[in-house]
Simulated scan of single mutants.
Amino acid sequence: MQSPRSVTHAVRLLAAASVVAVAVSLPPSVAAADGGPAWTAAPSGSGGGDGRPYFYLEGVAGTVFEDKLALTNTGSKPHTVGLRGTGEGAGAWIVLATPEVKIPPRTRAEVPFTVTVPPGAAPGDHPGAIVASGAGRETDVRVHLRVSGPRLAALTVEDVTVRSRGDGAVIGYALVNRGNTTLTPRLAVRAEGLVGGELLYRSPRTLPERLAPGERVERTEPWPDAPALDSVTVRLTATAAGGARGEATASASFVPWGTVTGAALLVLVLGAGGGAAWRVVRRRHGKPPTTDTQPPTKPERHLAQAGATT
């Protein structure tokens, strides 16, 4: 149920919808060039390239923001443009004065809208957008809404995997924004082998994603020169502004069964520990790991004892 204040502002918006019909004629110099877009959408007052590239709103929970979206028809034909809010947070709180606008040629129309922040909204960033569509194209104007209050920057690295691929490997992982502010993560990658020592080190670099609060993104890291024979531990460290830091590891074994020698296998087996040694040996002989209680044969008993003494 809407609060009385929200209803009041919704009524005011509907009353203000007449502003949409009061279009501003554009001078011939603003007319669309051949091949250009038939219409454009931007925050009101951002004409001339020196205005707002997006909407930025900041206030406490319960605030009702008011602003205007400018739609400019630079062509010689009228166009009808549909409007809607999108995204969680601010996108769900947007109420437009009208869901559709018919814009005459060489005319700009300004559409009022409100963003009503619920009283219980958590502090932090709540991004959204206004989507405009028509004449075979669609564009969105971003709405950056920040609810005042304590900010928490928190980032986790999850579901790390290492998989062989061709002559190398690929590292898979997920980044999750666990805080209430938008993050631009940086990632460092390190891999150490049982035989080869440090095998991979990639210093921290900024990733292209911006993670909204609660957002999860899955990514991969190629590793073209992964070892052919080794047991490795991969460590991923993600950081972001505000002290956010997350770290996770994964282990994998690279064993080329078709060409591995007995001596190399023994080094890998004994270095991996008793339990791992037993599993590798059983697989090498084509037998799946079991939990039976039968005593091992003499060769297997010898290997099991060798693994237990490491």
Rank of each mutant, 00 (worst) to 15 (best):
V7K: 03
L13F: 09
A21W: 12
A23D: 11
A31T: 06
G35D: 10
W39Y: 09
T40I: 13
G45Q: 07
G47H: 07
G47M: 00
G51V: 10
V60I: 04
F65M: 13
L69F: 08
A70R: 13
A70S: 15
T74S: 14
S76N: 13
T80S: 15
L83H: 05
T86W: 05
G87S: 12
A92Y: 00
P99L: 07
P104C: 02
T107D: 05
A109P: 02
T114Q: 11
T116K: 04
T116D: 15
P123W: 07
G124H: 02
V131T: 14
G134D: 06
E138L: 00
V141S: 00
V143F: 05
L145I: 07
V147M: 04
G149T: 01
G149E: 01
P150D: 13
L152W: 00
A154F: 00
S164F: 00
D167R: 14
G168T: 09
A169C: 11
G172R: 02
Y173T: 05
A174R: 15
T184M: 11
P185L: 03
A191T: 05
L194F: 09
L194Y: 00
G196I: 01
E198N: 06
E198H: 03
R202Y: 10
P204A: 10
P208A: 12
R216W: 03
V217E: 09
E218Y: 09
R219C: 10
E221Y: 14
P222W: 10
D230V: 10
S231P: 00
S231W: 04
R235E: 15
T249A: 10
S253H: 11
V255C: 02
V260D: 06
V260F: 04
T261R: 12
T261Q: 11
L265H: 11
V267L: 14
G273Y: 07
R282Y: 04
R282P: 01
K287A: 14
P289A: 10
P289D: 12
P289K: 04
T290G: 15
P295S: 14
T297R: 11
Q305K: 12
A308S: 15
T309V: 15
T310R: 14
